[in-house]
Design a binder for these strands. Structure first.
Lengths: 232, 232, 232, 232
DNA sequence: CATGAATGAGGATTCATTCAT
DNA sequence: AATGAATGAATCCTCATTCAT
């Protein structure tokens, strides 16, 4: 990122080089502490820079942090989604879950930052970030919607709740991993989550004996809000 | 919680009364703003107390905040778990999920505080809070383990992953609610989550014959918000 | 102002005492440098205080400065205006000019501060200060208006221009004095200004023999805005 | 003032051209904002120049600003004073007042800068600026002195006080205009000031027989703006 | 016990000025 | 000559914590 320089890229970088160095350092710090715990001084120090130098490039701490988050999302979204047509709906879902898991595991506190610091911002919904975040979570949401549309998944539980379950699992998974400082198997976790969701939501035709009548009844479903079915 | 006194509410409380007043005020504030946005001055003012007085009771702001979180958990855990024996495993799970949802929804920023500010603390695992938090999440974990043990649920997906899925959903659910400033139906959400997990994890023996009756029982369902599937 | 304490009033003053000490120190500094040249640090140092202490009492530097200016005006306006009824219009004017001169000469840069720093403020006209300033300058304006009303002064030059001439002279007088670090005689200056204005504006009846020819030359005059009469 | 070059205005100017471009840009900025609000960065930008380049030409921001003020005075003083011999003393005074008014009104913040930022400087009196400023104000002072010498004006009020009255009026006039963002008529204001001063100071021989009719005509006066009396 | 004045270590931000390129 | 990255001292402001009263 810093480029064409000896090791310690401390002196006289070009504007772009410096900006991306600052951003990558900040991103690193964001991954370690939260927004409020980051100080411009420490950012500067880690860049071997004076504090003022930061502000030559970013008008505001807040601005810098937002740019970092945006860049991060930009990066995420640049990953190819793969050949959707050629995979089964379940496989597509699993793959997306695996992708999100791997992303979030790589920098879990960054997710936290966006979730906790930025999202509560009153302006959040009008920020570019909001769009980017939506694009990101939509990958999974789309996979779910497609599966529902194709009749692979039932529609009796709201797609948004499913998406929340998936992202919730992913985040808890990664935070637990963070705390334990141990590791976990992304593929296994993705498979686990997918399994629960898929099995929990698949329509009758996939599950031999059950389906007939259940499936029949399924047809005229309308959803309101988010969730569940009831039993007496 | 706050002292029950005649007019001059703030005069000469006993040490314990004072402490719990401070704590309850702080808890209230934690629920309104985040940790970093709370100032000891404002705590004092809301207690009609001088700034210094706080420190007579709590050596440190941080200490106070932790005690508040602990007391909160203490309170949570004191709620009766109900008659486990008399409920079905599924019902027990649903009930616990509903309970956790209701808790978190009641004071979502408190949850956030524990999750975001305390958990990342390097000492977190040696804090009493950690134990308390475990006890809290264990209620759901235990319900799952019991269901696995009784053969109601499969064991092919880790109980911890299931627990993470559940808490993940709960948190996403409440955060979404926080952002949108709308409301959601706790019962419906609990049912939704339970449904996915249960259907996704139940063992074969439960499924074959049930459905008929599952379907049958379905009839007189009412949904509110956020949820579910409908049947004719 | 600081009150009832040993000499070095450095420690543990009451809120009011401290506030007025800070204000008087600031006023002193305002008299020495301009608004922008005052730093909160120096204010603190001159009070033998930490910087933070200042902000316990005044939310903002700007706020402090405004309060200082207000207090100053308040003080000015509290001086008794004397028995207007019993003095001649000319004497009343002279007295007011003398009063304003003495005030401004005492703390000329304070005037400058109000004139230069506060007045350009877009909100100035809605500030209390604006009212106070008006009250102050109105004393002279009223004296002029009264003299016009009573027929002692002509009305062919706007009262506002006269007021501007008077205050302009006063300020220049005091600034000159500031620069020269010499002194000047307030009474003499007041008399001088009064003389020019009065002689320049008095009506015919006071100056017996002159008028005829003056009037004759007067004829072909055109006026625009703000001022004067013309002569060929 | 800014270099007259083809397209790329900023390329390779001679030292002198560059300096005067910087100065004229700075002067423009001085007229828009105050001294303290000008940044070297913005000066550079407006010159399409790098920040460092400024310092190649002027050792210090302060130095640059002073040079700008000096150049401004230089320019003022270069304006021809007109044919003194051929005008009456009163006309000469009026003309000088009008000239000063027009100058100050054209760039009032420049005046402010000199008045407020430079004049309080302890070294002011030893600066070239001081001399220039004197020369400028002396134009009016000389007109007064001449009028006194020729017997047109009395000598019972100090010429310096008169000068102060005149400049004071001028400045108040322009500041008021600045605040109100309205406009005012330079000629009318000049005439008004001249009238008061002249009438207030003229010697007896000029005024003998005038009064009667002047007084008579006074009655039916209407004012428009700030000023003047009207005659049929 | 309680008060609240005072502290002091930061924190973000600004900007004239320097200097390697 | 010119550039523009970097500096660092200064500025206003915040707040947990201390301690004289």
């Amino acid at each position: 990122m810093a480029a064409r320089r000896p090791k310690r890229t401390t002196y006289r970088l070009s504007r772009d080089e410096r900006m991306s160095e600052i951003m990558s350092v900040t991103r690193q710090m964001l991954a370690e502490m939260g927004y409020k715990n980051i100080t411009t001084l420490e950012i500067a120090q880690r860049c071997h820079l004076s504090e003022g130098a930061i502000f030559r490039h970013f008008p505001t701490k807040r601005d810098l942090l937002i740019k970092v988050a945006e860049a991060w999302f930009e990066e995420l979204l640049s990953v190819d989604e793969g050949d959707e047509a050629e995979t089964s709906p379940r496989e597509r879902l699993r793959r997306e879950i695996g992708y999100a898991l791997s992303i979030i595991r790589k920098e879990p506190t960054l997710t936290r930052y966006v979730l906790m610091e930025l999202r509560p911002d009153p302006e959040y919904r009008s920020m570019h970030l909001y769009q980017l975040n939506r694009q990101f979570t939509n990958r999974i949401r789309n996979a779910l919607t497609a599966a529902v549309a194709s009749g692979d998944l039932r529609s009796d539980v709201s797609v948004d709740l499913l998406r929340d379950m998936i992202f919730g699992s992913i985040e808890h998974q990664t935070w637990a991993f963070l705390r334990d400082e141990g590791d976990f198997d992304v593929e296994a976790a993705a498979e686990g989550i997918t399994t629960v969701i898929w099995r929990g939501m698949q329509t009758a035709r996939d599950t031999p004996h059950r389906e007939t009548r259940f499936a029949e009844r399924e047809s005229p479903t309308r959803h309101r809000c988010h969730a569940g079915h009831r039993e007496p």
